[in-house]
Amino acid sequence: MTVETPERAGINVPDREGLYASMFRMRRFEERAYELFLQNHIHGTMHLGLGQEAVAAGVAAALRPDDYSLGTYRGHNHIIARGAPLDRVMAELFGRATGLCKGKGGSMHLTSVDHGAYGSYAIVGAHLPIACGIAWSSKVRGTDQVTVCFFGDGATNIGAFHEALNLAVVWRLPVVFVCENNLYMEFTPIGSVTAVVHPAGDRAPAYSLPSVVVDGNDVEAVYGATAPAVAAARAGEGPALLEMLTYRYSGHSRTDPGAYRPAGELDQWKERDPIAAFRRRLTETRADMDRLERMEADVEREVAEAVESSLNAPQPDPDDLLTDVFASNETRWRT
């Protein structure tokens, strides 16, 4: 098992400033969302992907707009990376009628079919078989669309993970499994309950599934590993698995301070912050910093507008409780 780096991958990233802006957009969205949570505008709980932005950004950059993706309950990054409008994402966090799920899902259920984002899944691992079905559909319809399935390290000990990996290989599906290994399942280190070092990458060979372990904090490495996997899937060469090594800055959920983490671990990872590191690299390699700063300003404006519009968005109508139970939009349980 080797860790891919941009140098090893030898792949040119098409739009480096754009890749940076994609990560910056996720970061600023979540930072604002967290503040708004503390102000009681967002209810329930929230699972932040702060620190993991390079994975979603690098993977999404390797996809076409008509490709499919499925995300997790820590899924703000996954859906924002696909281009979902921030105002509708934020409105869903607020539980407003204008949210992506009309307020019926919340943070853990974000979906934007218009952007190929076929749901966020808050039952760990359950969406891997569904990703197989979506990929099967592409194959049957004769399109070359690829499906990407994001999941966390914790999902690798669930049966659905193993059933899906086997099926993907047996059916030679155009699916790329992307594990975000942030070292912790919820409140317990993945390593303390898992028989192998790389919870996803080490399992893949058992299914003859090509896999690679990637520096998930290096957005160019993520892109560099994803692009060939997506290209192979698109060409009919079958599935792949990518294990992205990364770290979440927050605890598991909003109320978790993450006290179980060893002293200094968080600071060490923050020194490798994917956004700051990539910005430094862009400066050193003489990227178009004027363009980059304009993009940052655009993101700040978009986030501010998303917050403003969500604060003013209508609450759901209580009568809407009964709609959408069935696709035929029946509102009653019994005829």
């Binding site: 197989c132 099967w136 659905a160 059933e163 099926l167």
Partner: peptide
């Protein structure tokens, strides 16, 4: 395979796309 989660999950995924 004998994988009821995968059978139903794959069925769901394909149904989302109109099969």
């Amino acid at each position: 395979p004998l994988s009821e989660s995968a059978i139903v999950g794959a069925a769901i995924g394909s149904a989302l796309l109109g099969q």
